[in-house]
Design a protein around this nucleic acid. Sequence first.
RNA 1: CGGAGUGUAGCUCAGCCCGGUAGAGCACUUGCUUCGGGAGCAAGGGGUCGUGGGUUCGAAUCCCGCCACUCCGACCA
Length: 422
Amino acid sequence: MLRLSQLYTRTRKEVSEADPSRNAQLLTKAGFVSRLMAGAYTFQPLGLRVLHKIEQIIREEMDAVGANEVLMPALQPRDVWDATGRWDNVDVLFKLKGAGDRDLCLGPTHEEVVTPLVTQYIHSYRDLPQAVYQIQTKFRNEARAKSGLLRGREFRMKDMYSFHATLSDLDVFYERATTAYHRVYERLGIGDRTLLTYASGGMFSKYSHEFQTLTEYGEDTVYRIPGTKAAINKEIIGDQDALAGIIPGYKPGMEKEFEEVRAIEVGNIFKLSTRFSDAIGAKYMDEQGKPQSIFMGCYGIGPSRILGTIVEVLADDKGLIWPEAVAPYRLHVVSLVREAAELAASEPIVKQLQAAGLEVLWDDRVGFSAGEKFKDADLIGCPHRIVISAKTLAAGQVEYKARQDETAEMLTVEALLGRLSA
RNA sequence: CGGAGUGUAGCUCAGCCCGGUAGAGCACUUGCUUCGGGAGCAAGGGGUCGUGGGUUCGAAUCCCGCCACUCCGACCA
């Protein structure tokens, strides 16, 4: 339970237009984040809770596919990047000088670290497959940071890497990871509008897959395959050979009928094949005792970007609206009081709700008008709200309203608990 | 990497074109009133106007340099 009287952040009525994206405007107004510079934000108490909940859901689903969580250094030496040839080829790499003029960088991704790390323990086909992941702050020196949390130079990322003896084993795991990703978006409350999108595979494989969440505020354009929850990325919509390989029963030109939609990329998975294991010399012994290259896959998802995406997709003109699973608190309790002594009447109710296991944000502030408290509740966006006032206390009830509802209703605390546990 | 802007009170901004003792709203302090959808009135505190130089009797305002920041576009394994 958090008392608003003890929260150091405040909501703001106005925020600078210098950071104009919808997610930045609302999150800043509500006090969830604070911008330090373009592309770098502080997560304040309420925002941090949401971020942690998003990360925990991702963590649970990665654990469920058998991956091990680790935490690798963000600070990395040049030599591992030279080994894969990427020191001079990744233009978003943040480079810096360490003691003794040593070349270092901040990790934009971790193939260079994870491959030698994991293959310390992989010697035989018996040691495969394996998968590890981490949830960590990543750094990318983007030519231009923009769109609030959607494109930062410092951002949170879950990156998982899988290791396999064969391509077919990679394929199997890749499918499982895809399913896990769908579960993540489902739990995050954006599953119904997140499309599996075919994208170019770059240099490592034929295709990669993006997860694209539909919203008119999106920066990406994708082409939805009619009647499916799948889409084609802009990069390959013009490639008929690729389309024929992806879409069953494809007929040339049919892609012109596909709906063009705006979306935000909320995940990206790749088959790396042996690109990194070969560069680093990561091999295992097969059944015949012959060294073989390890096949790899990588699976990225950005919790901070997802936080911004949820705002873009679900917020309304009154403020934020959080899905149950990631709301900073499920229930916002507004006590309408004129003096601190009147809070005593709310306290047993708040305690009862808390005892029932509800996460409660309690507006116990004194000297704030009812209107101000209601505006704050709408802006902060907890999915459920109750009001405790002289009026409701006299009736032995509380006034309940869901965030997205227009009207409130009177309920007993027991009825409320029944409602919220359902 | 192109293009366009901005820097004035804790925050959001006006004032600059046309030089003449620094402004508003919000926030904050005090008092009175108000009290279920961002209350009202009154009083008050708070700024070397990013920075260095120049022009001028006089510069937030005009000129030159510097610093910092931002937006739009390109880019985005």
